[in-house]
């Protein structure tokens, strides 16, 4: 059975101009020990999705439809108090801005120990601090630096501390929202390696969220491409990368400079993402898609299964396959 099953999730924000659907009709499932990456441009709803899974949406945000089944339980039916028990203990998050996620006036080890003690008060201080040392070894933080304050840490060390904190209660699922965006390439590489090792060792499931397709590809088994609040392509990373189907995925891949192969002209995607308060009918990529036909506007979109592990949300792709 899947650890996490999300069905037809629609999330939005109340704004002055109306209800903005940041995520619409997203479904996916994630097995134990697997990792799933969501890629898309800013505004595509990927962070909203991560926050909704943790039930940490801002006050004007609301989950309108759908179900989130985590470990057999429906998270949307839980009260805030029950949710607090799930959060961090079973499901932890690594936030986008590592620099600001630590409390500046507490020592790093106190902060990590606090996370442990809050959820397991019976453990006792000594055991908790012992666990902190173990965690620091796991994420490659020197034991001697644990009594430092966050401002004495470099960016990479802060990120390691955050990862240690996310692991503190041995969660089953970690949601990592742009975990390395603010870091240098070498540090980024080390952190990603660390996350991969930890995942293998503890059989944790991970959801990666990033705009950087190369990072997501590096760490995820499966990849979901998001555009304007919808999932448009979903599948095993090899299939999505080697035979991308959706025009948006193709465009995203060809707008990314690489270091290998011929130096090709980058193809930026023309135009802008649609308004999500009054989204257009039919395919949302219509205005920017080179292969769009009039029928894309009028025909209802359905998921097309290309292989059992690769599907795409595009009307034209279906026509081309003759289905």
């Amino acid at each position: 059975m899947a650890l996490l099953e999300v069905e037809d999730l629609t999330i939005g924000y109340q704004s002055q101009r109306g209800f903005l659907k940041a995520v619409e009709g997203v479904s996916f499932s994630l097995d134990k020990g697997r990792s799933l990456g969501f890629v898309g441009e800013s505004g595509c709803g990927k962070t909203t999705l991560g926050m909704a899974l943790m039930r940490l949406l801002p006050p004007n945000g609301r989950i309108r439809e759908g179900r989130i089944l985590f470990d057999g339980q429906d998270l949307l039916e839980k009260t805030d108090e029950e949710m607090r028990q799930v959060r961090w203990q079973k499901m932890a998050m690594i936030f986008q801005t590592a620099m600001n996620a630590l409390n500046p006036v507490h020592r790093v080890n106190d902060q990590i120990a606090e996370a442990i003690l809050t959820h397991n008060p019976s453990l006792g201080k000594q055991v908790a601090y012992k666990q902190v040392e173990g965690l620091s070894r796991l994420v490659g933080l020197s034991k001697h630096r644990l009594r430092d304050y966050p401002h004495q840490y470099s960016g990479g060390m802060k990120q390691r501390a955050i990862i240690a904190m996310a692991l503190a209660c041995q969660p089953k699922l970690i949601i990592a929202d742009e975990p390395t965006t603010a870091l240098d390439v070498i540090v980024q590489d080390q952190i990603l390696e660390e996350i991969k090792n930890i995942q293998k060792e503890f059989d944790i499931s991970i959801i990666f969220i990033s705009h950087d397709i190369s990072i997501v590809a590096d760490v995820s088994h499966d990849i979901g491409i998001m555009y304007a609040g919808q999932l448009v392509e979903y599948g095993a990373r090899e299939e999505v990368f080697e035979s991308p189907m959706h025009p948006y995925t193709k465009a995203l891949l060809s707008s990314y400079p690489t270091l290998t192969g011929e130096k090709a002209q980058l193809m930026p995607i023309p135009g802008e993402a649609p308004d999500l308060i009054h989204p257009p009918s039919g395919c949302r990529f219509f205005d920017r898609c080179a292969g769009a036909r009039a029928s894309c506007r009028t025909n209802p979109l359905v998921w097309l299964e290309i292989t059992p592990t690769h599907k795409v949300f595009c009307y034209q792709c279906g026509r081309q396959c003759g289905r």
Partner: peptide, 26 residues
């Protein structure tokens, strides 16, 4: 420089690139 980096630091930068996308021939 990028095809044939000579300085160990440049080489370290190349190593640190995400592997899956840049894997072919690096």
């Amino acid at each position: 420089v990028l095809r044939n980096p000579k300085h160990p630091y440049t080489q370290a930068l190349m190593d640190a690139l995400p592997k899956f996308v840049h894997s072919g021939g690096v």
